[in-house]
Design a protein around this nucleic acid. Structure first.
Lengths: 210, 210
DNA sequence: TAGATTGTTAATCGATTAACAATC
DNA sequence: TAGATTGTTAATCGATTAACAATC
């Protein structure tokens, strides 16, 4: 699937949204939809919907529309969310706990297999069925279990160190809540940054001349 | 400041990033920077940096560059983060706790003044100095305190109801972690959605042909 | 003054939208 | 067959990049 290389960020950004809207429709018992209907619900245009889907193949039927179940399946394949890549979470604070508790990893392409922390007060505690392990065991654990992705719920200052350990153990994917610019450490890693501060600043911006 | 209307989403999206990088430089003791240097650090182009800043005015000095302190001040004004709009948080689960604990609202334009929940096991408990209040008191509280923004850390199913209450009490800004499409409820509200699932799906996508 | 770097206009590139032929 | 809606090409629009005159 070499196509992947040419997909623009704009399209990638929309894929999970399509999936979300379609999954909801599906749950409501809707079976088919036209690009027009879908566009209207999502606040976009039919053209964009069709262009986006056609980046990956022809999923519709002329004169009829799209079968939602089939679209969902294709989108799932495209995004690789039917995988179960081994993932670990580092940092068992409130944020780490929220992530471990709220995210249904199995529906998003990953399997959470461990939680690590460096604080004595947390090591050994149980969180959603995981016994929090010492960060000292990180490297061995990743190597033994083929960990592919790490979720960083740690302070910015600790990120570089932790990533060095993870990188040396072969971890290449990072869901990064730490605000550290990981790309500057290695360029053969995949990083998805979450900046909640940025999100809140955008909200603040839009308030200004309300 | 009518300019605000014409600012593209692309620019708005970059503003917090500029702020973040400049704040870090400032903390490192750097005082001035050229569009070129800043662009390099941020992985963008000098042209873009200058175009972006010039959406809001002329902050630089020809032949010299930009004074970081001044840029930060201007960006802060532009994003309105020196405000302290009254905000409340609804949903005192792990996610709510993480938000209440991690986000420095006062640096982002808001002041957190209350936490609400509908669960008896949570009402009355203390979270980061706030006594969790019953959601029954929501409306009165918002009206009495001029609450402008609500953070929704509640399940999707409860969102519509809660927003009706908040809306009727005058709350127009929403930092929405609930996955409910709030814009479909009222169109004179400001909504900033956080979809962590989408973020993780994007990470999964980029794994596929690694 | 000479050098540097901005502010701003012009050129390019890419993404979105419109149009329409293909076809179910 | 007629109607509907896709897949795809062409047109438009906007965002990014390049260029350069203004100026500190």
């Amino acid at each position: 699937m070499n196509k992947k290389q040419n997909i623009s960020d704009s399209v990638i950004h929309r894929l999970p949204r399509y999936y979300r809207f379609l999954a909801e429709l599906s749950a409501q018992g809707v079976n088919k939809i036209s690009s027009n209907e879908l566009a209207e619900r999502m606040g976009t245009t039919a053209s964009q919907v069709r262009q986006d889907f056609n980046c990956f193949g022809c999923f519709g039927q002329q004169g009829y529309g799209y079968t939602i179940a089939m679209l969902l399946e294709e989108l799932a394949k495209i995004m690789g969310i039917e995988n179960s890549r081994k993932a670990i979470l580092i940092g068992a604070g409130n944020l780490g706990k929220a992530i471990a508790g709220h995210i249904t990893f199995s529906k998003l392409g990953f399997e959470l297999i461990g939680i690590f922390d460096n604080s004595k007060t947390k090591i050994g505690k149980d969180i959603f069925g995981f016994r929090v392990a010492s960060i000292k065991k990180l490297k061995a654990f990743c190597q033994q279990n083929n960990v592919e992705m790490a979720i960083l719920c740690i302070p910015k200052e600790q990120a570089a160190n932790v990533v060095e350990t993870l990188y040396s153990a072969g971890v290449r994917g990072y869901w990064n809540f730490s605000h550290h610019d990981l790309k500057s450490l290695h360029d053969d890693i995949i990083v998805e940054n979450v900046h909640l501060n940025d999100s809140l600043m955008k909200l603040s911006f839009r308030f200004v001349d309300l």
